[in-house]
């Protein structure tokens, strides 16, 4: 199985994540798309760790997961606060900061 296979999969998942962020208005789904992009990156990391026979890539993935967990905790807390304020998770309603 060529390495390119995993990298291609990673690329497709990353683009799907981007599309999710760009197209969906539900803040929670946008968040999930972010997680998807994280995973795409992680996949690339692990693939290269395998390619170069280095542990560093895997360790990095571990750290990414830990930071992602932290980010999700804060992000979801924000989401709850926003929902309390606006009564909706529609990201387009948060547009008062504009020129």
């Amino acid at each position: 199985m060529p390495t390119s296979f995993f990298l291609a999969l990673s690329a497709i998942m990353f683009v799907l994540g981007i599309l999710g962020v760009l197209l969906r208005r539900n803040a929670l789904v946008i968040f999930m798309s972010l997680e998807l992009m994280f995973n795409a990156a992680n996949l690339a990391f692990v693939t290269f760790a395998n390619q170069y026979q280095l542990l560093t890539g895997q360790i990095f993935v571990f750290f990414i997961m830990a930071v992602a967990a932290a980010e999700v905790a804060v992000g979801l807390a924000l989401m709850v606060a926003i929902f309390r304020n606006k009564g909706s998770v529609d990201i387009d309603q948060l547009n008062s900061l504009k020129g």
């Binding site: 208005r25 990201i91 387009d92 948060l94 547009n95 008062s96 900061l97 020129g99």
Partner: peptide, 10 residues
């Protein structure tokens, strides 16, 4: 230019 700053995160 301020039209670019439309407030939509997306």
């Amino acid at each position: 230019l301020r039209k670019l700053q439309n407030g939509f995160v997306r």
